[in-house]
Design a protein around this nucleic acid. Sequence first.
DNA 1: CTAGTGACCATTTGGTAATATAGTCACAAT
DNA 2: ATTGTGACTATATTACCAAATGGTCACTAG
Lengths: 215, 215
Amino acid sequence: MTKTGGKLSPMKKAVPTPQPARGPVDHEVRDQIIKAATEHFSRYGYEKTTVSDLAKAVGFSKAYIYKFFESKQAIGEMICANCLHEIETEVKAAVAEADQPSEKLRRMFKGFTEATHRLLFSDRKLYEIAATAATERWAAVVAYEERVQTLLKEILQEGRQKGDFERKTPLDETAAAIYLVMRPYFNPLLLQHSFDYTDMAPGQLSSLVLRSLSP
Amino acid sequence: MTKTGGKLSPMKKAVPTPQPARGPVDHEVRDQIIKAATEHFSRYGYEKTTVSDLAKAVGFSKAYIYKFFESKQAIGEMICANCLHEIETEVKAAVAEADQPSEKLRRMFKGFTEATHRLLFSDRKLYEIAATAATERWAAVVAYEERVQTLLKEILQEGRQKGDFERKTPLDETAAAIYLVMRPYFNPLLLQHSFDYTDMAPGQLSSLVLRSLSP
DNA sequence: CTAGTGACCATTTGGTAATATAGTCACAAT
DNA sequence: ATTGTGACTATATTACCAAATGGTCACTAG
């Protein structure tokens, strides 16, 4: 027996990345960097890609990269934000196709679960960033979570207006609770431990939630 | 850039530990080992405790330990099982104090969340075992989860009989869905990522679940 | 036969020196 | 001013080997 010492970190501190940007926001090279980063990160992973690799890929020196991005993480944030935005767009499209609020809610749940699941087992390399981002609570993730909550509230609002959903419980409370129900299925860190349930969960939980919403 | 290679394991394979036992099941030394293990694991942690440490503590050689336990993990399972059993007992007591099924459900949710939370931030060292056990799906954990589900079903049954809960939805489906709602709050691995919500979640989610159960 | 162990092996783990990487800066060329 | 860089430092990662650990087994004592 040697010395005492914890190992498992319970929850890392937030690193909200308040930096706005660096260098010209609209610049060809910035886009090239993002493109190269997207390719490299998704092929080799975030950790295994060095800033020098990206520099080589765009044909400039490493120092030049730092004229456009505060840090490697800032580049990661960009890629991650794009990735999350894609998921969001896809889900929103699926939701928009439905007429009834209840069906919208179902699609939202199912859509997020499947998209996140795909991230986890197909786009393995990109998942790595998403996991890091979620663990360290990067700004991109915080914003994403907020937008998800907004989408949820919109659906709830519509359902209430149409008279499909009950109106007694305060909207914010309902939204918060349903968000908590959904969270394990579109947060990569949590989904990782819910692999066995991704098939059944969206359907079963949507039904439960809808039962709780009946007027 | 070096070579490709994943790092994040998505979900480890189950190690159900089908071994029954080893050596005399009822034996003074076995109890001594368990006692020593409980102390050591909770003081220094599972990983930092060596089998030799336990041997020294009980005053025998390491080899003798293996007359009673298949492996170090088998000892960990024992401790873990005890720990989970304690949580369960505590929660069951709180549940039994309530009369109405709805209150029972609330207490069950709150009780498990608080107990698991305490495990996570007070009994840090024991948490380490629980986390390992949950990740590798040790038999003790699987059994625990099943007992939790059973308790849930009992409460639901009672609520249905008393007419407090709706009876249209199949019991198994209801139970499965509610279990999915609760899971993130008494699985240590999941709770770890829900630290920010442990205050609000049990109340809000219980309310949601109860709304879904209204006849 | 039961209680008990030292010596042993295959893997892990710990410590450490060498290497690689993130990030900065002064400066050059245009 | 804008575009671009090589050389530099502090920190993180790797590579390597010695020590520690999980686990077994043949064996002794009573």
